[in-house]
């Protein structure tokens, strides 16, 4: 079973809560996805208000409520925003995205913030570009996962960073969660087949005409991809059938 910071996680599909047409549709989709980890932007909730719609909607006995720092442009901002959730949980999905358009993560500020938050006792799950060296440095400072992107958030482009993600997985000491850009269940399956420990999906489910069904599809795709990985995928290779063998002399 997947384990993050000592906690066993039942589902390898994490789900985001943005962009849904209503809280009701969001809850149905979360339920159908089988996800245990649900991430919520702290900017969207009134963290001190237990009656806040979104906080109240997500049953924290059933789901692991993972607040994120979406909107932060700098390490300082991310740290300040993360601290807001301290009364509720010490888990945080760290996002430092100075460009509000493509929402690509700032590696330098992310590393700075991660270091501070880990020291303060947070379980830190940083969103990063698929940069293997950054992934290693984040593990060195004590992050509990790394979350490289497949392609920009909401782009539906799938696993454009597959080669770099493969290296991250190969070198990882913590779970690798592919986050962002997964636009179709097959993209999620592909990430899992590569050996990712989990994936995070939001837009593809939230803006689907049928979010519940799409959540189900992602759930199955993640399981299928994982099982494919575990069963040992044959890697596509050129057939070794040279017409004149190079080692014939050994006979």
């Amino acid at each position: 079973m997947l384990k993050i910071a000592g906690r066993e996680i039942k589902s390898r599909l994490f789900i985001g809560t943005g962009k849904f047409p209503s809280t009701k549709i969001m809850l149905e989709a979360i339920e159908a996805s089988g996800a245990e980890i649900v991430t919520v932007a702290l900017r969207r909730v009134d963290i001190d208000n237990p009656q806040d719609n979104l906080i109240e909607a997500i049953d924290r006995k059933k789901y692991l409520f993972l607040p994120n720092t979406s909107g932060a442009r700098t390490a300082d901002e991310a740290v300040r925003i993360a601290r807001l959730a301290k009364g509720l949980t010490n888990w945080v999905k760290l996002e430092v995205t100075p460009d509000p358009n493509y929402l690509l993560p700032d590696p330098i500020e992310t590393l700075k913030a991660a270091e501070i938050l880990v020291k303060e006792g947070f379980v830190v799950l940083p969103y990063i570009n698929a940069d293997p060296v950054l992934a290693l440095k984040l593990q060195d400072v004590g992050c509990s996962t790394v979350m490289p992107l497949g392609s920009p958030i909401g782009s539906h482009k799938g696993l454009r960073t597959a080669d770099a993600i493969k290296i991250i997985i190969e070198q990882a000491r913590v779970p690798v969660v592919v986050d962002a850009g997964l636009g179709a269940p097959s993209h999620a399956a592909q990430a899992m087949e590569l050996g990712a420990d989990a994936v995070l999906v939001n837009t593809a489910i939230a803006i689907s005409p049928n979010p519940k069904l799409m959540a189900q599809a992602f759930c199955k795709a993640v399981e299928a991809g994982r099982e494919g990985y575990l069963s040992g995928l044959a890697s596509p290779s050129e057939k070794a059938s040279a017409s004149s063998p190079l080692t014939g002399f050994l006979k």
């Binding site: 849904f20 047409p21 209503s22 809280t23 702290l42 900017r43 969207r44 909730v45 009134d46 909107g71 932060a72 300082d76 901002e77 300040r80 925003i81 807001l84």
Partner: peptide, 19 residues
């Protein structure tokens, strides 16, 4: 807004972004 199949969002920022 709800009737159009959209979510009315009241809070999408936090004053704590500014120190």
């Amino acid at each position: 807004i709800t009737a159009k199949g959209y979510e009315p969002v009241f809070k999408d920022w936090d004053s704590n972004f500014i120190m």
